[in-house]
Design a protein around this nucleic acid. Structure first.
Length: 911
DNA sequence: ACCCATTCCTA
DNA sequence: GTAGGAATGGGTA
């Protein structure tokens, strides 16, 4: 029986499903025996079959994007310019999908010069004219503009249908204003320009107030504030954005809706295809269908693959807990996560624990939920007592997300977490440090295409946010169990990718993962601060700041806030009529330090502002703040080192940031006097000398630069001698300063323009210096050129140890971005190799300290090229010598690696 | 209460 | 010119 002419039209946006299926992790693993990936094929077919099942009377038509440019590229050349090319393992699945769909007998449309959306739009409109009901199956929000009384959308992933009321509810505007809405927001992914800072909320607000895009444009001058300016700046672009966002309804099609009818399935061809791509389940169903004598609908009866589905238990009873314990004990590897009262590991108290041994099955063990009428929970000492042997067993593999945090929390419960076999945060960071942020929500979205439940959804936000112990156990249990489950799924999605790249896997296994417990130990131990000294400094600074404020107000002739750049601009450039030297990126007259420095030569106020700025920075950020960060438990300050933040491989430090404690200015340096050693101990600071320049020498292999280091010369002096063609002992201090600026500039990927600004010389002169430099050190020039072309060709650069940094902007058509990416490409191998080296040194140092088993030696801080220790005075000399030796030999380069040590009662003295 | 731009601290 | 974090003011929600 054929479908009647009034059976609903089901339009499938094949391309949208293709991409979604490609990113589903359990599908990613699928391939034929000879390696042809089949995950996307399977996914798309499952979705089509599931649709056929949901709409048995439906007339299914499948539409895909064609290869190549579309009319939108003609309208706007940058359209979708940011899209990376389609990955090969996806591309190779397209032709098979087309073949299979055709063999199934379904009409398949692939029209060049337009997108699938436009074909779907056109068909929907034709159907509408014929009075046929249409359902569009897509994951693309842009399609909402097509919704009408006769046209609905369905999201097959979520099985949610959307009619006109649904569009209004979801987007806040009716379907006939969706294009206006999209035009205002623009689209980062497709590179459609919109109004800067205008997101869904603002777009809806404006469309509600002014009805349509036309209305918004007409009333643009009434919109206040920054967004208003952005709107006015975008006025000319908006009609183009509108056009780009508009789905065409009049594509010329060879076959209209009336002609698009399903044919008999070609069972023979289908069988061959299913065999070829080893789609066993589909094959089995096809055969079963044949036997039942129902060839055409065989595939339609297929069960869809289950989506992310899960069974989460909440454990209240001892018996249930012990049964889980047994599962954990028997599992090769399990995921676990702690739920606590705070993100600050020093304040966090355990509220519950979650576990997962296999995907889709997880459990939450609530322990300390204490809201009114909270149900009874297992005793924390009992639970931890049972778990302790498992958690401390280094042969029992665990996987987690940012387990350093959990390790720090558990340390307060006398559990030393061991056997951390995998950490999904670090996996993602080692695979691609810049593709995403590395928190679980972002990872789940990127690698699983799954939106996790956000903490705010169960805890609320702002001042009224609940802590975990106050959250209803049933809600909390789902969230917590999901975390463990998702962690396991993430590991399964990310780790196989990491394994494909031996160098990156090595960085993960040999550097990052072993470093985690070392960092945890440093964080736990903390650093000792002399709060009294800092308080004293705060008072002195406060007094001086008051004096400066009075002086400044006198000169200005009125009172103003010295800390406000805006008010200062007003005073300096409008009231005192001082000339503007430089503008901020936003176009306001800049009052940055270099500007004030120059103005200070001719005017009195800038000098006062400079001193005020410097001192108030010291006071607010350091002398006031640090004493407040001393933890009650230990009387010390405990930073957090972040292992998955810096793109280049460096660590970063927050709460407080101990990697930017002042040293350059006299007053600032004093703050380091407050970083003290405990009784009978010394602070030892050991830093690598010129590490990045040495790495440049090693990586470039330039003979001149290498020999400068092997012969132990002052490298800046040696460089100056070469550039200025004078003897080493004839180099003036000015020449050395210039050479130093060039050496550093090179590490930063600098241009002649940058150097001229740095040295305050002409551009021509700067170019001459650089030419001379490259003439003397041609290996460096070759290295820079090679790095740049390597970055362009493969899209990433690598450190000496194989850490990778991807540079998506290297292909940008925006010259600013492209140049920026080139500079980053030059810098990353050097900064990143330095990061690798000090991390290796930390591992070697930690191994040695553990071997000594001597509590009188502690590593307390890392500041990129420097390690800081607390060492008992009785053993400080020999221990320091040993540590220097370990750091010197952390890696083997073609130039010597030199660490220099200082010893003192505080960090200042140790420098 | 939150987001942003600006400024300034480090390697 | 590279890589970070934090404080501040000021506008908007």
């Amino acid at each position: 029986m054929t479908t009647s002419s009034l059976s609903p039209l089901i339009l499938v946006d094949g391309s949208s499903y293709l991409f979604r299926a490609y990113h589903v992790p359990y599908l990613q693993a699928l391939s034929t025996a000879d390696g042809q990936p089949t995950g996307a094929i399977t996914g798309v077919l499952n979705m089509i079959n599931s649709l056929k099942k949901d709409y048995p009377q439906g007339n299914v038509v499948v539409v895909f994007d064609a290869k190549g440019k579309t009319f939108r590229n003609d309208l706007y050349p940058e359209y979708k310019a940011n899209r990376p090319p389609m990955p090969e393992d996806l591309r190779s699945q397209i032709a098979p999908i087309h073949e299979i769909i055709t063999a199934m007998g379904l009409p398949l449309l692939v029209i060049e010069g337009v997108e699938a959306d436009d074909v779907i739009g056109t068909l929907a409109r034709q159907a509408c004219d014929l009075g046929i009901e249409t359902v569009i199956s897509t994951g693309d929000k842009d399609m909402a503009q097509l919704v009408s009384p006769n046209v609905r959308l369905i999201n097959t992933m979520t099985d949610v249908e959307m009619d006109e009321a649904g569009v209004l509810e979801k987007f806040g505007v009716k379907p006939d204003r969706i294009i206006d809405y999209l035009a205002l927001m623009g689209d980062k992914v497709d590179n459609i320009p919109g109004v800067e800072k205008c997101g869904p909320k603002t777009a809806v607000k404006w469309l509600t107030a002014y009805d349509s895009l036309e209305g918004v444009i007409a009333n643009a001058d009434q919109v206040k504030g920054k967004v208003g300016e952005n709107l006015r700046a975008a006025l000319e672009q908006l009609p183009l954005s509108y056009e780009l966002a508009t789905i065409k309804l009049d594509v010329a099609l060879e076959q209209g809706v009336a002609e698009l009818r399903p044919k008999e399935a070609n069972v023979e061809a289908l069988t061959a295809l299913y065999q070829k791509f080893e789609l066993r389940r589909l094959l089995a169903e096809l055969t079963a269908g044949q036997v039942a004598g129902d060839g055409t609908d065989a595939a339609g009866e297929a069960e869809a693959e289950p989506e992310i589905s899960a069974e989460y238990d909440i454990i209240y009873e001892q018996a249930a807990f012990e049964s889980w314990l047994k599962q954990l004990d028997e599992a090769d590897c399990f995921a676990f996560d702690t739920e606590t009262t705070s993100i600050d590991y020093m304040k966090a108290e355990l509220v519950g624990l979650s576990f997962a041994c296999e995907v889709g099955k997880a459990a939450y063990v609530p322990l300390k939920h204490d809201y009114e009428d909270a149900p009874g929970q297992l005793d924390i000492d009992y639970v931890l007592g049972k778990l302790k042997p498992l958690l401390e067993d280094k042969n029992k593999a665990k996987v987690g997300q940012n387990l350093k945090y959990d390790a720090n929390v558990l340390a307060h419960y006398d559990i030393e977490l061991q056997g951390v076999a995998f950490d999904t945060m670090i996996e993602s960071y080692c695979l691609n440090s810049v593709a995403t942020r590395h928190n679980m929500d972002a990872l789940a979205e990127k690698y699983l295409g799954y939106k996790t439940m956000h903490f705010e959804e169960i805890a609320g936000k702002g001042a009224k946010q609940l802590t975990f112990n106050q959250i209803d156990i049933e809600k909390a249990g789902f969230y917590a169990a999901e975390d463990a489950d998702i962690t396991l799924r993430l590991h399964q999605a990310i780790y196989p990718q990491l394994e494909k790249s031996p160098n990156q896997l090595s960085v993960y296994q040999n550097i990052e993962l072993p470093l985690m417990p070392v960092l945890a130990k440093m964080e736990q131990h903390g650093v000792l601060i002399d709060s009294d000294l800092l308080d004293q400094q705060s008072r002195a600074l406060g007094k001086r700041l008051e004096e400066l404020e009075v002086e400044a107000h006198n000169i200005a002739g009125k009172s103003f806030n010295l800390g406000s750049p805006k008010q200062l601009q007003q005073i300096l450039f409008e009231e005192l009529k001082i000339p503007v030297i430089k503008k901020t990126p936003k176009g306001a007259p800049s009052t940055a330090e270099e500007v004030l420095q120059e103005l200070a030569l001719d005017y009195p106020l800038p000098k006062i502002i400079l001193e005020n700025r410097g001192l108030s920075k010291l006071k607010s950020t350091y002398t006031d703040k640090l004493p407040l960060m001393v933890a009650g438990k230990t009387n010390r300050v405990h930073t957090s080192y972040h292992q998955a933040v810096a793109a280049t491989g460096r660590l970063s430090s927050t709460d407080p940031n101990l990697q930017n404690i002042p040293i350059r200015s006299e007053e600032g340096r004093k703050i380091r006097e407050a970083f003290i050693a405990p009784e009978n101990h010394k602070i030892v600071a050991i830093d690598y000398s010129q590490i990045e320049l040495r790495i440049m020498a090693h990586l470039s292999g330039d003979p001149g630069l290498v020999s400068a280091f092997t012969q132990g010369r002052d490298v800046h002096r040696a460089t100056a001698a070469e550039i200025f063609a004078v003897d080493l002992d004839q180099v003036t201090s000015d020449q050395r300063r210039s050479a130093k600026a060039i050496n550093f500039g090179l590490i930063y990927g600098m241009s002649a323009f940058g150097l001229s600004k740095q040295l305050d010389i002409g551009r021509h002169q700067a170019q001459q210096y650089m030419d001379k430099y490259f003439e003397r050190y041609p290996g460096v020039l070759t290295y820079m050129e090679d790095t740049r072309s390597q970055a362009t060709e493969q899209g990433y650069v690598e450190t000496l140890f194989g850490r990778r940094l991807y540079l998506p902007d290297i292909k940008s058509k925006n010259q600013m971005r492209k140049k920026g990416a080139e500079r980053a490409a030059i810098n990353a191998p050097m900064q990143g190799t330095a990061a690798d080296i000090i991390k290796k040194a930390m591992l070697a140092v930690d191994a040695w300290i553990r071997e000594q088993n001597d509590p009188r030696i502690k590593m307390t801080m890392q500041v990129h090229d420097e390690l800081i220790f607390e060492i008992h005075q009785d053993i400080v000399e020999e221990t320091t010598a040993k540590l220097v030796e370990i750091m010197n030999n952390a890696v083997d380069l073609d130039v010597p690696l030199i660490a220099e040590a200082g010893i003192g009662d505080n960090w200042h003295q140790a420098h």
